[in-house]
């Protein structure tokens, strides 16, 4: 346990010294503040709104930015130690490769959790005070699931970092993974489902990916404001909320969206299944990373 913690705290301290943590905190705080203030501009509202409406605005930000930050952090964790040849010295000293990888992961989690938690805490407090809103549940769900989303992508980044020989290679692969998870997966899934004439599943995909589209996001806000009726498709979907949208579980970003979509558009992704999906991604990424690392000649 001690080597693991030593490696983790060194990683956090290195990132802090290099300015990564501070830069990440600044970017995150800036983005979260702008989104909270201007996220409802599409329906003509400026300023801090209640928690539930802010959550809809923040959905886009979290689903794009958190996986990107996590992958940018994770892709560098192992490959830099290999390139600098410090990994050989650590392993030769009697620290197992699995401990090195888990220590790096833990250090990455600390590094990522610091700015994210700080951003959510400050934004949550500001919203609570400015909007005098006490229904903090949806915001807490967003914050917690956003952190989990980051941790999953950090593990994926670490796997990429372990499999690549150079930092450039790892960076390219990490960016491709981000594009794949955030943009490409939904398009491919939609195409596959539509081509197989599964209309209901296509509707579910469309709903879950609505948060990607500005106009649809505006519709979701309106649904909250009670200014219009929810789209018929959403209403019909809510009635079938028990449908198991198993395809959602493949992509952590879609799991995150499904967990956080507001009630009118809610999809039934049971929490135990969402948790199992997250654990599976973590297990595969970390297990795969350890398996690969043990087969690398240093």
């Amino acid at each position: 346990m001690k080597p693991l913690w030593l490696i983790a705290t060194k990683e956090f301290s290195d990132r802090f010294r290099s300015g990564w943590v501070i830069a990440c905190t600044a970017v995150w705080l800036g983005a979260i503040a702008l989104t909270s203030l201007f996220g409802l501009a599409q329906i003509g509202r400026i300023g801090v709104q209640g928690y539930e409406r802010t959550v809809v605005s923040l959905l886009n930000l979290v689903q794009y930015l958190v996986p990107l930050l996590a992958l940018l952090l994770g892709h560098d964790l192992m490959v830099s130690e290999r390139e600098e040849r410090t990994l050989a010295l650590i392993v030769a000293g009697g620290t197992s490769r699995a401990r090195v990888l888990l220590g790096k992961f833990l250090g990455g989690v600390l590094t990522l959790a610091f700015p994210l938690t700080l951003g959510f805490a400050i934004a949550g407090t500001a919203i609570g005070l400015a909007a005098k809103d006490r229904a903090v549940g949806s915001f807490l769900t967003l914050a917690l699931s956003g952190l989990v989303l980051g941790v999953v992508f950090l593990a994926i980044g670490l796997l990429i970092s372990t499999c690549c020989r150079t930092r450039v290679q790892a960076l390219v692969l990490a960016l491709l993974a981000w594009c794949g998870a955030v943009f490409v997966f939904d398009l491919v899934a939609m195409g596959v489902v539509l081509s197989s004439n599964s209309a209901q599943a296509a509707l579910e995909i469309e709903t879950a990916t609505d948060a990607m589209h500005v106009n649809s996001a505006a519709d979701l806000h309106k649904a909250f404001a009670g200014e219009t009726e929810p789209r018929p498709a959403h209403a019909a979907l809510a009635q079938r909320s028990q449908t198991l949208a198993s395809w959602l579980l493949i992509n952590p970003v879609d799991v995150f969206r499904a967990v956080n979509l507001p009630k009118p558009a809610a999809l039934a992704v049971p929490i135990p299944l969402a948790t199992a999906s997250v654990l599976l991604w973590l297990g595969l990424s970390l297990g795969g990373g350890i398996w690969k690392l043990q087969r690398i000649d240093l």
Binding site: A88, L89, V91, G93, G94, S96
Partner: peptide, 16 residues
């Protein structure tokens, strides 16, 4: 790996 704690190692090109 624990059994390697008895070794002290100086690589050809020390990397720190």
């Amino acid at each position: 790996a624990d059994r390697r704690a008895v070794f002290g190692y100086l690589p050809e090109r020390i990397a720190l």
